[in-house]
Design a protein around this nucleic acid. Structure first.
Lengths: 336, 336
DNA sequence: CTGTTAGCGCGTTCAC
DNA sequence: GTGAACGCGCTAACAG
């Protein structure tokens, strides 16, 4: 039993008007006499007519759909940007096609292309780095792209971020002020990626100002997960830093738990600072000092920018940098 | 500078063939001489032609897109089903339109309707309860709907679940075997919702078998969040249960942390068991004993069922019940 | 193997 | 105010 679909023609016939008129009332075009509008509405109701968004998209060339590209749905950081994106999208009546890029360069290009094939009106892109290939695709795309929580080193695409390097620098400066000299950095992705370079830059700047030489050996790459953090712990312990900045909260949780279990007290023997202020930072014991990022706002502002671009409006600023903060918890010693 | 779009006609003209032929090579139809196929492919490449999925959808009446309805993207339980859904969808080349229902009845119906308007080929629905209105919409929809991690009490829609009541019962039985008599239940949603009734049933059955009277006052509703768990702690402590089953991991983490801080030792004074075996259960101290659910599989199987339905195949079984487990951690005392 | 011809359901001029 | 007609880009028979 195939469900029959009632079209705009059926409504037109039933209401004894032309389909153009039906189209007008459906789209709220004021050029319709209230009486006929009411009549049409009644028929629509009775026939349970639903406009076909695909046909509408073909005719109008707008799909009221935006694509969102995310490296990994389970990544708690990018996932945290989604509520902001979702809310603003919903506010402007856009639907979202959400796609995983698996953080792989090739895949990211594919995903972008299939989104464009679906005629999305715009794209929010999240990822760990922007390479030339991707940048070329963005330019070629006929729909606007906005980066959220993602840095384009060439600064070609509109984007929303915090000044992550400055945040790391501030963390490091605080650590140095409290006497630390061996400060480690635990990251997830490859060191050539931009999202690894930024914190590394922050660390270097901070160390420079404290007249402490930068030591490559204290920068670790493991992967952003709880288990990665656990596994990294003995490795880090070997080189004996007294403080570590971690790029991901789950990873920091793993590092802390493993440290405590092996007799290294946090924060007495090792101070830990992390990046994303997710709920994880409150759950661990000790709780974790963290950079605070306006995650919701990053998503919301990015989506807001995208709505402007999709309506051919100018952007006030192409690159938005939102303020960060630092919240102190038990994983660091108080400065006092 | 409007980006011009190259259509199938442009390719056809340029390659000196008909558009039907172009369509064939694009869709991998074998009825094309390799030579002409190659020629067409070359032109496609040169003109950088991208098929318009919207037009294709209109003509073919298939959008190769499925809708996924989720109550709240930040809910870690439903979020955990997504990788399974995503992977299978990707495997079958379906895109996903992800929409939040905010767990509100009205909203769920709306969301479903706009998805249908977008001509999705099918829908995966996750939610906390299925009411009559929703059930009616499912029936009316022209695309199939599969429930994931969601129970339809009327059992009308295909669904994938674990036997959650049995799992809770087993937990309770274990608790009783170790001497517990006052066992509390901490849930998130309203007690009339099915997802609250199920664990309550499990608790009751377990208690019955242990000849312990069921006490309504020991069933709490707070909300599935860390803070809700923290706030609930003093309330629960007042009635002095010696064990509690919690419906959500973050909530359990809040409860445990708050308990420890107020001098109630877990597990000595209070044993805690939770539901979803997310990474949270490993991060807390003590770590949390939990029901283990094949979350990935629930999503994957649901999506697999949906692909069958979308291709008019029969389902082997309409209601799939996957096995659960129980993993013991520090929040409960060992039975030995 | 390849081309022709109809639509798919709707938005949008342009006349009436 | 309202309707007729065309086109969006593509798939799907049907001929040839």
């Amino acid at each position: 039993m195939e469900k029959q679909t009632v079209t705009i023609y059926d409504v037109a016939a039933e209401a004894a008007v032309s389909m153009a008129t039906v189209s007008r009332v459906v789209n709220g075009n004021p050029n319709v006499k209230p009486a006929t509008a009411k009549k049409v509405l009644a028929v629509i109701e009775r026939l349970d007519y639903r406009p076909n968004a695909v046909a509408r998209g073909l005719a109008s060339k707008r799909s009221t759909t935006v694509g969102v590209i995310i490296p990994d749905v389970t990544n708690i950081y990018f996932a945290a940007l989604r509520p902001g994106i979702d809310d603003i999208a919903m506010m402007y009546k856009y639907n979202i096609i959400l796609t995983n890029s698996d953080d792989a360069g090739e895949q990211e290009v594919n995903v972008l292309n299939t989104l464009m094939g679906k005629q999305v009106d715009g794209v929010i892109f999240m990822g760990n780095y922007i390479d030339d290939k991707l940048r070329a695709e963005f330019k070629r795309a006929k729909a606007p792209v906005v980066l959220a929580g993602t840095v384009d080193p060439n600064n070609e695409s509109p984007s929303v971020n915090i000044d992550y390097a400055a945040a790391v620098e501030e963390v490091v400066t605080n650590l140095i002020a409290r006497g630390h000299k061996k400060i480690a950095l635990a990251l997830g992705s490859l060191s050539q990626s931009i999202n690894a370079r930024i914190p590394t830059d922050g660390l270097q700047t901070g160390l420079n100002q404290g007249k402490i030489p930068f030591d490559d050996a204290l920068v670790y790459e493991a992967g952003y997960s709880y288990d990665a953090g656990r596994k990294l712990q003995p490795v880090i312990a070997d080189s004996g830093p007294t403080a570590v900045f971690v790029g991901d909260d789950e990873m920091a949780a793993g590092l802390i738990n493993a440290s405590m279990e092996s007799g290294i007290n946090v924060p007495d023997d090792l101070e830990v600072v992390t990046s994303n202020d997710t709920i994880i930072t409150q759950i661990t014991r000790p709780a974790i000092t963290s950079i605070t990022q306006p995650l919701y706002d990053i998503g919301a502002v990015a989506m807001r920018m995208l709505t402007k671009l999709m309506n051919d409006k100018e952007l006030d600023e192409k690159t938005v940098t939102l303020p960060y903060g630092i919240v102190r918890r038990g994983s660091t010693k108080s400065a006092d």
